[in-house]
């Protein structure tokens, strides 16, 4: 599990750290960490629905912020629990782009062991950095 929830940060909300060798791994890990707040066992989310996300930003951190926010949007707008099937990140000309294919299904309290609802991704202490050969992100989620 390339993410962990932090115990002594943001006591009313949920803070996590996610990591990966590549940006693609980092985005996938942060998406899993976000969904895992709402669903205890991500393996119970099976594939039925597919969605595509394509976003661009000037900053890498805002790109991740918006990417996670899309997952939160689909959870409310279509009651979809989504996981990352494929993700690709490209940088160039001062722009960072993400294209992702997501899979999942409609939320079902009888099937999915639900946790707490994610209201929003916050920018408080939000950070994406590359150090010692790995990408890391710190995220605080409003619940």
């Amino acid at each position: 599990m390339p993410y962990k929830y932090l115990e002594d940060v943001a006591i009313a909300d949920v803070a996590f750290e996610a990591w990966g060798a590549t940006l693609e791994e980092l985005f996938t890990a942060a998406a899993e960490a976000t969904m895992n707040i709402m669903v205890a066992d991500l393996a119970t989310i099976t594939s039925g629905e597919k969605r595509k996300i394509a976003l661009e930003e000037e900053n890498l951190d805002l790109l991740l912020f918006n990417f996670l926010q899309e997952l939160v949007f689909y959870k409310d707008a279509e009651r979809l629990l989504l996981r990352v099937a494929k993700v690709r990140i490209e940088q160039g000309d001062g722009i960072v782009r993400v294209e992702a294919e997501l899979y999942g299904e409609e939320l079902n309290p009888r099937k999915h062991d639900l946790g707490v609802d994610v209201k929003a991704i916050t920018l408080h202490q939000f950070q994406v950095e590359h150090s010692a050969g790995a990408w890391r992100a710190n995220v605080i989620v409003d619940v």
Partner: peptide, 11 residues
């Protein structure tokens, strides 16, 4: 007002 994080409380 909370005194303990959600992550800690769950444990």
């Amino acid at each position: 007002g909370r005194t303990m994080s959600r992550t800690k409380a769950k444990k």
